[in-house]
Amino acid sequence: MTSFKQVWWVMAKERGRQLTQLLGIDLAVVVVLIVMRLIGRLSAIDLVGFTTLMALITAVAGFVAMAQSQEQVWVTNRWRLIPVANWRLYLASTLANTLAIVLLWVVLGVLEIGIATLEGFGVDGSVWRDLANGTLPFLAIVLAFTLLLWSLISLAHMLSLVITDFLPGTQGKWLRRGLTFIIVLVALKLVDWLFTGMAWLIEKLGISPAAFTYFGGSVMAFQGSVVADMWLAVGMVSLGAVVLSVINCYLLAHWVETKQLQQMA
């Protein structure tokens, strides 16, 4: 049998390699921007603005790349024939994604803070106070939402595969596309219900809705009143991700089969 650690390590290395390529593109653009700044073609505020925009684009591209890699795991023999339990495979893939994306965020963050500091938009004491108060739980909420979205994408993908398996094989690709569209709509409705449920919980538990937003979190963090609520929010979003993941693991074990590729030769 293959251990969870072995699978996770191989996945983490591959995902890390993917994100390193994205980071390379980001760095190349940043270098060009710095050169433009050095030769006076760019103002300090423009440099910081453009590099921040690039960092955001890279982070989004990283999210999409990780989602794509994750979805391939469910339907390829390469991963599904490894002798490891389906829930371990799912967990390994999710943790590999998480590690890779967090490392990407850290590198992008360090780069942005470095550029901002060099340009005199320095990091003062308040940033570290923010970090200790509002920023850290905010980042945790972003990570929890990222996990929730990945699990939602997997759920939509797996459901479309399972339903397609029940449809007559002669149906064309348009039917499958239509089905995928409907599943995405249903998935979005599920998220809506999830958030409605959360709002109900928030009200019952007396959590400030500001706990879910950076602005609110950050401002109120200075007052030291909302951080605990923010961590509760992290817990609730994470719970949503866990619930969806449990459903995904069930589908993976009992219904989702690998794609029967045309032999590559």
Partner: peptide, 8 residues
């Protein structure tokens, strides 16, 4: 299984 290679 010879299909193991699918997905690389």
């Amino acid at each position: 299984f010879s299909g193991m290679i699918d997905g690389f």
